[in-house]
């Protein structure tokens, strides 16, 4: 090494190395502490409706096994690195070429595990993938770069035209009742996403996708366009307020004035 003209030696680094991981863990801890107390209006871990709830469950089914496997692999690597590090530069270990039984085991075991989480996953796909129920409250969502418009066919004016709302912070839906969003795009692809109520569904020109959600309790929910749609994609946000049916009716009546 000296010939390279650097003053760094492996010894220096080795000393550094022992406390780098410690620093790293400390940093992570700091991350969690400071991250936890902030307000998080689009937090997917904080579901406020049936759909988001079930989706979070599915996430946990895969997250916990993933954490276990991660621990096994990373921990395993750590153990191996410590235990089998070179001690004698002359030593050549036995040349093991494999072990068919073992290899079959770690082929089959993950497959079984995956099917075990995959089958309930399919059940949830069908559960959430059903069409909206008969008495769902219909909202037609019209996406246009870079705004949302909500139309309420349940509330019409004298000419039979549905109530239409453009104010992105002033959308309203009923709480405790299923809402069926009919998604229309007039230009490019957008994606309709209210994280605390449920996952997203794309809004595609020439095609009407239908998403149903339900807010368990009244409240205001933050949402955002989740498919890149051009210049101000980031600003295509919305606030949706869920309120009891009577309040909603009153609000609509007022809006129709």
């Amino acid at each position: 090494m000296r010939r390279n003209g650097t003053t760094l030696t492996l010894g220096h680094l080795r000393r550094l190395r022992t406390f780098i991981p410690a620093l790293f863990l400390l940093g992570l801890l700091a991350l969690f502490l400071s991250g936890c107390d902030t307000d998080t209006p689009q937090n997917t871990f904080d579901p406020k409706g049936e759909v988001a709830d079930k989706q979070a469950d599915v996430f946990y089914w895969s997250m916990w096994p993933a954490i276990v496997i991660m621990t096994i692999v990373l921990g395993g690597l750590l153990v191996i690195m410590l235990r089998f590090r070179e001690r004698d530069p002359e030593h050549v270990p036995p040349q093991v070429h494999g072990n068919t039984r073992l290899e079959l085991a770690w082929t089959i075991a993950p497959a079984i595990l995956l099917l075990a989480i995959g089958i309930p996953m399919v059940a949830t796909i069908y559960d959430l993938g059903r069409p909206p129920s008969e008495d769902a409250f219909r909202v037609d969502v019209i996406a246009q770069r870079f705004t949302w418009e909500f139309q309420y066919p349940e509330y019409t004016d004298e000419d039979g035209k549905p109530l239409s709302v453009f104010d992105q912070s002033g959308f309203h839906i009923p709480a405790g009742r299923e809402v069926a969003f009919y998604l229309h795009s007039v230009d490019v692809i957008h994606s309709f996403w209210l994280p605390k109520l449920g996952g997203k569904l794309d809004v595609i020109p020439g095609r009407t996708n239908v998403l149903w959600l339900r807010a368990d309790e009244p409240g205001t929910f933050s949402g955002q366009c989740a498919e890149f749609c051009g210049l101000f994609h980031a600003d295509m946000t919305m606030k949706v307020t869920a309120q009891p049916q009577e309040e909603l009716d009153a609000w609509a009546a007022e809006m129709l004035q």
Partner: peptide, 21 residues
């Protein structure tokens, strides 16, 4: 491995509705 495992959490369709994009 970490990246692959988060891939598996994506592949769980209903949870990807939240994660996508």
């Amino acid at each position: 491995t970490i990246g692959g495992l988060s891939g598996v959490t994506h592949s769980m369709v209903p949870s990807d509705y939240q994660q996508n994009s």
